[in-house]
């Protein structure tokens, strides 16, 4: 009972935060509410006894990704007004489609609620005194799921290459530091002795 109450509290916070992410006018607020989303969903995962995923979500997304995200949002000066132009116009259509989908799903789930009850869903939980998420994951990730693990790594590689390809611009006229040329330079390349045209030698 108490678990259920906690679940509903976190789920409600998650939904509200997710809504604010897309409706907030200020991108920094959006990013911060996304952080709240991640926190609450990690709490939901903890409730579902998926503690490794919950911790990884906080560490990776909140700790690293969102910090980067905030940096980018703060450094880019994006004018959001033109991006929001169509929002009000398309909102009714979007809400309508969303409402139809929710109603349909509610009808299906409601009409056969026994099918969606706890017992009807196939159990994949491993029972055991000392079984924990990290150990279970560690046992299979490099053995049973090594193929998928590698493919996921390739997906990340493609993301890196794509990001660099789309943003790296080799413009003419940019200044580079050529260390080898700096080291190999001679005095004659940089220094030129000229005779003082006035013919005076005050220093001597």
């Amino acid at each position: 009972m108490i678990q259920l109450t906690i679940f509903y509290i976190f789920a409600a916070v998650l939904l509200v935060a997710a809504t604010v992410v897309i409706t907030s006018r200020n991108p920094v607020y959006s990013a911060l509410f996304l952080v709240l989303c991640f926190f609450t969903s990690s709490a939901l995962w903890l409730l579902a006894e998926a503690e490794f995923l919950g911790i990884a979500l906080v560490l990776v997304y909140v700790g690293a990704v969102m910090v980067l995200f905030l940096f980018v949002v703060m450094m880019l000066d994006i004018n959001l007004a033109p991006m929001r132009e169509g929002f009000a116009r398309y909102l009714p259509v979007g809400l309508g489609v969303g409402a139809v989908m929710v109603a349909e799903m509610a009808l299906v789930v409601g009409s056969s609620s026994a099918e969606f009850a706890e017992g009807a869903i196939a159990s994949t939980v491993v029972e055991g005194g000392d079984s924990n998420n990290v150990r279970l994951l560690g046992n299979v990730i490099y053995t049973k799921y090594v193929f998928q693990f590698e493919v996921a790594a390739v997906v990340l590689l493609v993301a890196i290459i794509a990001a660099i390809m789309l943003t790296l611009r080799r413009r003419g006229g940019t200044k580079h530091q050529e260390v080898a040329e700096q080291v190999a330079v001679h005095k004659a390349d940089r220094l030129r002795l000229v005779r003082d045209p006035r013919g005076k030698h005050d220093n001597q």
Binding site: Y145, Q148, V151, V155, V158, A159, I161, A162, M165
Partner: peptide
Amino acid sequence: LSLYLGLELLSLSLYT
């Protein structure tokens, strides 16, 4: 899982 990962690898490349 492999099906989805393959699909994402393909889609990500196509977006690029």
